[in-house]
């Protein structure tokens, strides 16, 4: 029985972290679908969001709701700047250049954050209630529950946005085919810019949520790397796949951390998602829901 509760605890924590992965993966897939850019700076967007929100809450003593919206606004501006100054000149360049440019971007964001706020870990002021909840025989910190719920709310909001809003439909059309979208009068450039905005906003939300669980420092950017296993598992160009992949990777890393750590001497959590990634790439490279690329001569 004890075993089962331990398992359940790992799953619940994994689900909470996984829901954040799902959120960030959503932003990642969105950029990839719209403009075929693999964004290696996703984790840094997340870190910047968390730091901005933290600074607003602690240094400027802004109430949480205001700080949250200001962070969102800042993320949108940052995303627009990045898209316009860095990514727009690279349209049509080879994949390696685009990968390298997002890596360069991540280096800049990381060093600016380290320059302003230093590298010390900072604790987020409590946003969610602190008392743990009792589920059967285990205590679950409420942060996990709220994180999961908040992520789900955002995922549903974005699902509705893509399904019903005019812009959301235009974005799906662009993702499907840039050329057809152009000929239907959709401004593809605008769609690229908005994809970056959405990605930056979901990352910032993810950053605030994860920052609440683990505290804020530069290792937060590592969450952006965990998105890769998630999107590869789900299929690089599938939004439902990204969400499902995020949840699965979150649970999986927590389970492997819980059960395998004392065999391998700790830190299995950090590497298990990447082992999964390599295995998926070898047996099913286009993931669960990705479109298989078939080439005809």
């Amino acid at each position: 029985m004890q075993e089962l509760w331990f398992f359940l605890q790992l799953v619940i924590q994994g689900l909470a972290v996984g829901s954040v992965y799902a959120l960030v993966a959503l932003g990642f897939v969105l950029i990839y679908k719209a403009s075929s850019v693999i964004n290696f700076a996703q984790g840094e967007l997340l870190m910047v969001g968390a730091y901005i929100c933290l600074a607003l809450l602690t240094t400027y003593q802004v109430p949480f709701w205001a700080g949250f919206f200001l962070t969102m606004a800042f993320s949108v501006i940052l995303a627009l700047l990045i898209e316009r100054l860095v990514l727009r000149p690279m349209i049509g360049e080879p994949a390696i250049s685009i990968i390298m440019i997002t890596i360069g971007l991540s280096l800049i964001l990381k060093s600016v954050v380290a320059g302003i706020w230093g590298t010390q870990i900072k604790v987020f002021p409590a946003i969610f209630p602190q008392t743990p909840v009792r589920v059967g025989e285990i205590m679950v910190s409420q942060v996990y529950i709220y994180t999961f719920m908040a992520s789900m709310v955002f995922l549903v909001l974005f699902a509705l946005f893509f399904k019903y809003s005019r812009m959301g439909i235009a974005m799906r059309a662009t993702a499907n085919s840039n050329q057809v979208a152009l000929s239907m009068g959709i401004s593809v450039k605008k769609v690229f810019a908005i994809s970056w905005c959405v990605a930056a906003v979901v990352s910032a939300v993810g950053g605030i949520l994860i920052g609440n669980i683990n505290g804020v420092n530069s290792t937060l950017a590592g969450v952006g790397l965990k998105v890769f296993p998630a999107v590869i598992l789900g299929g690089l160009d599938s939004i439902p796949g990204a969400v499902l992949g995020g949840l699965i990777i979150g649970i999986l890393e927590n389970l492997s951390g819980g059960y395998l750590d004392h065999y391998f001497g700790g830190g299995v959590k950090e590497v298990a998602p990447f082992v999964v990634l390599v295995i998926i790439l070898m047996i099913k490279p286009y993931g669960l829901f990705g479109t298989e690329e078939i080439e005809r001569v």
């Binding site: 860095v86 440019i101 890596i103 360069g104 971007l105 280096l107 320059g115």
Partner: peptide
């Protein structure tokens, strides 16, 4: 901390 950032900027 800026050294890395300068690398990034030069790459871009």
């Amino acid at each position: 901390s800026m050294t890395e950032g300068v690398f990034g900027l030069i790459i871009i």
